[in-house]
Computed example of a mutant assay.
Amino acid sequence: MSHPKISVILPVLNNEQFVDRCIDSVLHQTYEDFELMIMVGRCKDRSLKRCIAWQERDERIIIVSRKDSSLSDARNYALPVAKGKYLAYVDADDWYEPEYLATLVAPLEADDSIELSCCGCAIDHEDGRKAAPLLPKASGTVDVTSETYTQFVPNQAVWIKMFQTEWVRRYDMQMYDGFAEDVSLQVMIAAVAQRIYCVQAPLYHKTFENPDSVSVNFLKKSYLDTVLGLAYAVEFIRRHGREAVLSKPRLKSIIFSRIQTALTCSGYLPEVSEAARAFFQKYYPAEASQVRYEKKSLDAPVEIIAGAGQITRNLLHYMENSSRVRYVIDNHAHKGQTIGSKQVFPFAALEQEPKDVPILIGSTLYEYEIAQQLCAMGFENVYYVGDVLDEEAVQKVRML
């Protein structure tokens, strides 16, 4: 195909068990004007042979066999040679709903000022469990700033989005070559995006079935890349003269929280702590002391958990002294809400608590943001997930 409308970029590395399902879902889209660029790394299994078999059946498939096995490098390599006016992504162990391409391309074709469209995703586990879908917080066309983009599109993943190719190339939006590339890209997009389109439907299926998948390995060992990837994003922002957005409260809070999460969930590995200190000393020297770089010892059992999301549900299951937790607090608590047997109250409930009460932050996305809120209220006996669980348990809590 000489001028396909969409270029779908699919990195493949040791995905023999799953790649057929993925490719089949792309080829059976209701929207047919696309090329499928399969970027195959140095595989130890029969993934490449499986891809070749599909190529022999459909001329829309282009295979690039590469020595580099990096996910981001495969995506970056495809960017300058992609022929489509629009870019879409898919991971080899995931799959599309049949209307994925048609739904996301329609608003881009209708309005050139829309830089990207996005949808929700369903989470599928290998044991058949299906978590609640992750959906955009808006519907339709939305004008965004660096402060509002992440409010409307909290899911940082590239594979729930379709981009105007010219827009991505204009900013030379190369992805960070390492794990946590989506964390870095989220900050980059937030700094430059102005108009997006949101579809509140789970058209993408994210699976956690492959023990060798990049996503699972990220949760296990790649916290250092979170810090390095965010440094990469900050340099991107500086390069495009957008330094002012780095001081915006929400974007800064996201950066700080992601790095605090990397620190606590890694068990404060020395190399992660060193990289985090260097990051803040370079980019946020005045606030470097607000980040915790070392594990905090528990002086007393946790009594209150801040945050009423899935992490808190999982924490209550894994904490040895969960029976000592009296209640949960959340900014969006509603009357009668419970987490298991624990009542959920608004943050105002803390006004009745002594300032030394032990509080655990039940989040691995907004740790810093919640810590700042607690600190402003005068509470200093605050703990993170990595303070009360070992690293193995932290991984289980994050993936349940």
Rank of each mutant, 00 (worst) to 15 (best):
M1E: 13
H3S: 15
P4C: 01
I9G: 07
E16H: 08
D20W: 02
D20S: 13
R21E: 13
Q29H: 08
V40Q: 00
I52Q: 13
Q55N: 07
I62S: 07
R66Q: 14
S70A: 07
L71R: 14
A74N: 08
K85A: 11
D91P: 11
A102H: 09
L108Y: 02
L108F: 01
D112W: 02
S113C: 07
C118V: 11
C119S: 09
K137G: 04
T150E: 10
M162G: 03
D182M: 07
I196C: 07
Y197G: 06
Y197C: 04
P202G: 03
H205N: 15
E209F: 14
N210R: 04
N210I: 02
D212L: 14
V227C: 05
G229F: 05
I237G: 05
R239Q: 09
V245N: 03
L246G: 03
I254H: 08
A262R: 03
L269C: 06
P270M: 01
P270T: 09
K295W: 01
G307L: 01
I311E: 00
N314G: 13
N321F: 12
N321E: 15
S322E: 04
S322H: 09
V325M: 05
A333K: 00
Q337M: 14
K342D: 11
A348V: 00
L350Q: 00
E351T: 08
E351R: 05
K355D: 04
P358S: 05
L360V: 03
E367M: 07
G378V: 02
G386T: 11
D387F: 03
D390L: 03
V394A: 08
Q395T: 11
K396E: 13
